[in-house]
């Protein structure tokens, strides 16, 4: 993040409103920035039990969408929330064990060349 520049004054933007749902937090609690195409999924473990953090409606919406594997970017699209907000809320759910990041497939399972060929065939078939 830059420490600021002249554009800040020219374009203040709608500012903090989107971050109201995170209680004003703009960085994930664990400091990790999930990749936009990282895949996450609900673990089925109950969230929030006995925890300091109360689940907000947005946390619950994320949990519902995460019943199936989904990318961080798709979550943002589905919920109509900025990716930065999604990351903060996901980090809460991950810390509670309610959501997990799905490991990438081992490279051996499908080689990079196989994936490229699949993309090419898929595009041609569109």
């Amino acid at each position: 993040m830059p420490s600021g520049g002249p554009w800040r004054r020219r374009e203040p933007g709608p500012v903090v409103r989107p971050y109201a749902v995170t209680g004003g937090r703009t960085e994930p609690a664990d400091g990790e920035r999930l990749d936009l195409i990282a895949i996450v999924v609900a673990t089925g473990q109950p969230a929030g039990a006995g925890d300091r953090l109360r689940l907000t409606p947005e946390h619950r919406r994320i949990l519902t969408v995460c019943e199936n594997q989904v990318t961080v970017a798709d979550l943002g699209a589905d919920l109509g929330l900025p990716v930065g907000v999604i990351r903060v809320l996901l980090a809460d759910l991950i810390a509670q064990g309610a959501v997990a990041v799905v490991p990438k497939r081992p490279a051996s399972e499908r080689s990079g060349n196989d994936v490229l060929r699949e993309i090419l065939n898929g595009l041609r078939a569109l």
């Binding site: 664990d30 990790e32 999930l34 936009l36 195409i37 990282a38 895949i39 999924v41 673990t43 594997q69 990318t71 991950i94 997990a100 990041v101 799905v102 490991p103 990438k104 497939r105 081992p106 399972e109 499908r110 994936v115 993309i119």
Partner: peptide
Amino acid sequence: MGSAHSDSPAALFIAQKI
């Protein structure tokens, strides 16, 4: 991203980025 990874089965789909 070590700690957050689950022991669950690998991804059902591959996401690639352009």
